[in-house]
Each structure stands twice: as C-alpha cells, then as structure tokens.
C-alpha cells in the first residue's frame, strides 16, 4: 500500500497555492492534515499527480470567537478546537461534536478544511456545518466567495468546489444565550465513522415554546441533511415527551438511508428516530 508516484509543492501564499491547483486542472489536490487524503492515496483510489501542501500558507489557522459567532480557519486542527476552552461556553455544540471525530492521533492533524472538502457522508463537521447554517469561505481563481454549507455538499465524497478552489474557513452564526443543544452519535466502535449522528439545538421563547429548531443528521444520505420535518414538529410547541416523540417520528419518516456492510437502511432509519429522541431529551433536560 505504497502511494503512487506524485509531486509535492509547499506554496508560501494563498495565491500561489491556487495558481498551482488551477494550473493542474484537478490533477493536483490540496493537502491539509492529510488524514483522509493519504489513506485514499495508500489504497490508490485517487491518482493526483501533485499534492499542494497548505502548511506554508499563512492565515489559514486561528479560531476567532466574537459577537458574530465563531470562525474556524481551514487549517484549524481538531486538537486546536479541543484546546480552545472558551468554546465550551461560546459554542458548546462544536466541541461536543468534535469529540466524536476519529482518534487522538488523527485529531492532532485532521483539519476543518480537510474534513469539509473530503465530504464524507458520515463525518461530524460537515453535519454540524449543515445543521447550524455555517458559512463556508472559499477562495478560487476568481477571488473569494462565500456559500452556505448546504451548498457545499453535492454527493458522497463530492463537493461543489471547482479545481483551484480552496476552503479557507468556516463561520458559525452567533450562539444565543440559553440555547438548548445536544449531539448524539452511534458508531460501532469509538472513533469509527458514525452509523448515524444527530445534532440538535433550539431556543425557547418567553412562553417556553421552541423557536428556531435546528436538527441535522449524518450517515443517512450521501451528504448531511437537515431533518426539517422534525424541526417543524418542534417549532412553536412546548418541549415535552409528546413533542419529542413527534419530532423523532418525523425524523424517521423523512430519511431515505441506504444499506451497507455495516447496517441496513431500516436500522439507520430507526436510529435517526432514536438518536433524535435522545438528543432532544438531553437538550431539554
């Protein structure tokens, strides 16, 4: 399982990186932490002629926490998020989700941008991004642009990025005080990709009714999805067992998962309900 021959460049600026990527028209791939890309190369499932290491590109790291929300640079590692203790108060769902990603050594190298660009249907960060209305910051041949996370993912391991596009960061909107939240994941072993994961948050109005419910799932389709039917079942209702059960039923009903060697579609569908129920119960506790 040795990698196929390839070239390597470590550009010192974003412009240089983009120029190299664009010049290779898809045959060059950006290399961030490499924790998803290098296994693919080891299995020779992809054959880039060039890797463009982003390590030397300035300005891609850094976690910014402010009134506008949280911004994560593309080269922020999982470990950086774990180490940023202010997030526990500023955006508690983020570290909760991150703690499920892979293993210790992977978390020391895997990056925000790498995970988003890899677009695994069961990966946690893409799920969080879609669930929470994250904005993806992209720089491409024509300069910078921003897209909602939901516009990034177009299929399993497939994004709307063009050759020469680089993800440079991701922004999460402001976190409201008193927000209720939870993340539930079922994986067959610690650190494995999720069979199903459900992220949820909502706010309560003065009357104790749910407003602005956000619920999303990973592992149930080619890319992360919002469980909009479950959100509708919550919005405007007081949070109680009946509401939670209705939301869980709605979540189950709206997903169309596939069979694979690890789990049947029926199992995944049932898990969406179970995990939605558990997430909402925990959020409301």
């Amino acid at each position: 399982m040795k990698l196929a021959p390839l070239d390597y460049k470590r550009p010192a600026s974003l412009q240089e990186a983009i120029a190299i990527l664009a010049a290779h028209d898809g045959a060059a791939l950006p290399l961030a932490g490499g924790q998803s890309l290098i296994p693919i190369l080891a299995f020779r499932l992809a054959a880039p002629t060039m890797l463009v290491d982003l390590r030397g590109v300035p300005g891609l790291d850094g976690i910014a926490i402010g009134p506008g929300g949280v911004r994560l640079g593309a080269m922020v590692r999982w470990r950086d998020i774990e180490d940023e203790k202010r997030l526990a108060a500023a955006w508690p769902l983020l570290p909760a989700v991150i703690s499920h990603i892979a293993h210790y050594q992977i978390r020391n190298r895997g990056t925000v941008g790498g995970s988003l660009a890899h677009a695994d249907p069961a990966a946690e960060l893409p799920g969080l991004a879609v669930t929470c209305d994250a904005t993806i910051e992209i720089v491409g041949r024509d300069g910078p642009r921003e897209i909602p996370a939901s516009a990034l993912f177009v299929g399993a391991l497939s994004t709307s990025l063009a050759a020469g596009d680089l993800i440079v960061g991701m922004r999460l909107p402001p976190w409201r005080d008193g927000r209720r939240w939870a993340f539930e994941e079922f994986a067959l072993r610690r650190g494995d990709f999720a069979i199903v994961g459900v992220a949820a948050y909502y706010d309560l109005d003065d009357a104790g009714r749910v407003v602005d419910a956000h619920i999303g799932a990973i592992g149930v389709s080619e890319y992360p999805i919002r469980l909009t039917a479950a959100e509708q079942a919550l919005n405007g209702s007081p949070i109680d067992d009946a509401t939670i059960a209705a939301a869980a039923r709605a979540a189950c009903a709206m997903v169309e998962p596939q069979d694979d060697i690890h789990a049947s579609a029926a199992y995944r569908r049932a898990l969406v309900g179970t995990l939605t129920e558990r997430a909402l119960a925990r959020a409301s506790a």
Binding site: F43, R189, G191, D192, I261
Partner: peptide, 28 residues
C-alpha cells in the same frame, strides 16, 4: 459482536480495511 468478512453474491470481498473489519478497541 463485530468482526466479519462479508462477501457479495459474486464472490467479491467487501471488507478490505481495518476501518471495516472491526476488531475490539481499548474502549470496547
């Protein structure tokens, strides 16, 4: 609980990595 070498009907083995052949981990 977890280890299985799965084949499809055409005789292709569907398990080819330690991400899919689930040996016990320290947490199990």
């Amino acid at each position: 609980f977890s280890e299985e070498l799965v084949y499809d009907e055409s005789g292709q083995i569907l398990v080819g990595s330690l991400a899919d052949y689930l040996v016990p981990l320290a947490t199990d």
